[in-house]
Design a protein around this nucleic acid. Structure first.
Length: 517
RNA sequence: GGCCCGUUGGUCUAGCGGUUAGGACGCCUCCCUUUCACGGAGGAAACCAGGGGUUCGAUCCCCCUACGGGCUACCA
């Protein structure tokens, strides 16, 4: 069992691609196999600096690291246009089937193309791109479907090679069957028969000397002994091309499984073409000339504080289910339950609200110290660690994304809370005497515990004939400036005597002018 | 236009010829409770895209239509 993820270094890794990578990873791990990363950079024009590192970082961040893939030596061999990759992210030895970067495998593709040429299964074609565009336009004008006219299909090979040797620009095309159906099998959707006359003698070697995807990926999947090819459903239509390559070379094709797209709320595919943002890992800085367009649904989930484990879990059940009602599962449980035949063949809409809910589930399952560690990057610098940990622990069951932590805990860390006028008017006015008495009672407490604090507050409240919200709300507003938040007595215990005294003093001033009831 | 793929509540899905069509998110109500949240108990929400078949019986098998998506590049 060997699977691979084969993205192009052309920008952000988007959810759809990410989920396909996850499925590939899960399949390999389910059967104890290997998951490989291969970089498909045969279109050098679309290369975006920094995206190679982004791809590797993202895979690591999600928790789907590759068993075989780019290593230090091969990345070092890349031109500067790829940007740098943190060596710590790269293995010393990428694996026995490398290099795993297509631009570094040019010689092997040439070899395959030459053998196809020799066998009479492919041919050189000399039309320029302009001529081809002209042929296409002519068909469009007559409203007939365009197909390459196979002008050079029977052109003399020796003659063609001479022209190429003389420096003429040319491409190599594969001779597709001219009759009979071409049969492809998709693991999820079954067999489909493609009429030969809908097929084109497609290009397998571009004029720049590199092959396009249709050839390169097949050669690599074969050479790297990939058993299951999981890829996006946009590849379904070109599968007949792919099986034709395998057939021409006399190779056994892998099992193809096309994963459905992941759509945004607008039902539009979430892909790099509409500029979905990255999911995890540091936000990459790409070249200025890389401008994603369209809807930005995903946002910077990593910056928002979505935990990798939550995303791993969520993505795994986005378009797949274990066949029962289980949704929250550990990574081990997911791997054990993973079954590609239960992948849904229809596209799914990315449900951000459900992800947020699930992230909350994962945040709540964290130990207080783990939660503190995860939340720390979102907190201001220079806080007392013990105090900060105790403070944010009170919010752990309330936040769905880590980014919420600073705004819901800021009153712990500022000298005085920000008092909203509305809250002051509603709860502080007329509570001066109550707060004053509370202040002294708290200051006089011999023992500092949540229970002791609660007892003191309840006692003072009782003497003022205050119950429930009447008793607690003025205190909450006095100490935090707001009306919602963690348990009042817990929060007071964490704030401590000194901070409490300062806040009571300020609150009494704000309450001035009113009379206690 | 041509060729493909898809279609169960708003969303993600279970189902694989006989079910009161199950679960989750979201929404609503109630309980717990000092607020919010968590947790608990309920509820609204799908004539299984529509129409034909096959069958004693179709969400499930076949066909057609509609809608959505993809491909139709010297991009992947």
């Amino acid at each position: 069992m060997r699977t691979r993820f084969a993205p192009s270094p052309t920008g952000f890794l988007h959810v759809g691609a990410f989920r396909t990578a996850l499925f590939s990873y899960l399949l390999a791990k389910r059967y104890g196999g290997d998951f490989l990363l291969r970089i498909e950079d045969t279109d050098q024009k679309r290369l975006v600096k920094g995206s190679l590192e982004h791809i590797i970082q993202s895979l690591n961040a999600l928790g789907t690291p590759y068993d075989e893939g780019p290593d230090r030596a091969s990345v070092a061999a890349l031109p500067e246009a790829y940007g740098t990759v943190d060596p710590a992210l790269l293995p010393e030895n990428g694996g026995a089937f490398g290099p795993y970067i297509q631009s570094l495998r040019k010689a092997r593709y040439t070899e395959v193309v030459e053998s196809l040429l020799d066998a009479g299964k492919a041919y050189w074609a000399f039309e320029t791109e302009e001529e081809l565009a002209g042929k296409r336009a002519a068909c469009d004008a007559r409203k007939i479907p365009y197909r390459y006219d196979r002008h050079f299909r029977d052109y003399d090979l020796a003659e063609a090679r001479k022209r190429v040797a003389d420096g003429e620009r040319a491409v190599v095309r594969l001779k597709m069957p001219t009759e009979g159906p071409i049969r492809t099998v998709d693991f999820l959707r079954g067999e489909t028969l493609w009429d030969a006359n809908t097929q084109d003698d497609f290009i397998i070697l571009k004029a720049d000397g590199l092959p396009p995807y249709h050839l390169a990926a097949m050669v690599d999947d074969h050479d790297m002994e990939i058993s299951h090819v999981l890829r996006g459903e946009e590849w379904i239509s070109s599968t007949p091309k792919h099986v034709s390559v395998f057939q021409a070379m006399g190779w056994e094709p892998p099992i193809f499984l096309h994963t459905p797209g992941v759509l945004g709320n607008d039902r539009k595919k979430l892909g790099k073409r509409n500029g979905a943002k990255p999911l995890l890992g540091p936000v990459p800085e790409f070249d200025k000339n890389y401008v994603p367009t369209g809807e930005f649904l995903i946002g910077y989930l990593n910056q928002d504080g979505i935990l990798p484990e939550a995303l791993f879990n969520f993505l795994s059940i986005c378009g797949w289910s274990p066949g029962n009602d289980r949704e929250v599962m550990t990574r081990e449980e997911i791997i054990e339950a993973f079954d590609i035949s239960k992948i849904s063949p229809s596209p799914a809409i990315f449900d951000l609200e459900k992800l947020q809910w699930m992230n909350g589930v994962y945040i709540r399952s964290l130990s207080p110290s783990a939660f503190y560690e995860k939340a720390r990057p979102y907190l201001p610098e220079g806080l007392d660690a013990d105090y900060a940990a105790a403070a944010i622990a009170l919010e752990q069951e309330r936040v769905k994304e880590l980014r919420e932590v600073p705004e819901v805990t800021d009153f712990f860390f500022s000298e005085l809370p920000e008092y909203s006028e509305r809250s002051v008017a509603k709860w502080l006015k007329g509570s001066g005497a109550y707060l004053a008495e509370l202040d002294s009672a708290i200051a006089a407490l011999p023992e500092w515990s949540v229970a002791a604090i609660e007892a003191a507050v309840r006692s003072v409240a009782a003497s003022h004939k205050r119950e429930k919200g009447e008793a607690t709300h003025p205190v909450r507003v006095a100490l935090t400036g707001r009306e919602v938040g963690p348990g009042l007595f817990e929060l007071m215990a964490v704030l401590g005597k000194e901070r409490l005294a300062v806040r009571f003093k300020k609150a009494k001033e704000l309450a001035d002018g009113g009379t206690d009831s």
